[in-house]
Simulated assay, not measured.
Amino acid sequence: MSGMTVGFIMFAVLLALMVIRIPIGISMFIAGAGGYVYLTGSEVPLMASLKNLAYARLSNYDLVVIPLFLLMGQFATHGGLSRSLFRFVSAFIGHRKGGVAMA
């Protein structure tokens, strides 16, 4: 069976699993893991990649800026900076059509 046929079968299995109300993430994992095992002929490569996958995804230090950015937004909101900036922008370009929404 070609890779394209296996892909179509995996997509059909994915849709069937979602129709019987299995959560999307679990359905995607089942369909993907099944196709991977079928194409490689063994479950050993799948298990080898899964044992390091969770740590590899969560140890990405570039993503540490996201919670810090949200924290900065909370400080700006509770400190009144957001309201002041909105008033400034509204006074600066609020008279134009679309005003602050376009900015």
Rank of each mutant, 00 (worst) to 15 (best):
G3D: 04
G3K: 02
T5N: 05
G7H: 03
M10S: 11
M10R: 00
F11E: 04
F11L: 15
A12C: 10
A12R: 13
L15I: 02
L15F: 09
M18I: 04
I20Y: 02
R21C: 00
I22H: 05
G25M: 12
I26F: 08
M28F: 13
I30T: 14
I30S: 10
A31T: 07
G34Y: 11
T40Q: 11
G41P: 15
G41V: 02
L46K: 05
S49W: 05
S49A: 02
Y55C: 09
A56F: 11
R57D: 11
S59L: 10
S59D: 15
Y61S: 06
D62V: 10
L63A: 06
L63R: 00
V65C: 11
P67G: 01
L68E: 08
F69R: 04
F69I: 14
F69D: 02
F69H: 07
M72A: 13
M72R: 03
M72C: 08
Q74W: 04
T77V: 11
G79C: 07
G80Q: 07
G80I: 10
L81R: 06
L81G: 01
R83M: 11
S84A: 12
L85P: 05
F86R: 13
F86I: 10
R87S: 13
F88H: 12
S90E: 13
A91R: 15
F92K: 13
I93L: 14
R96A: 02
G98A: 00
V100R: 10
V100A: 03
M102D: 14
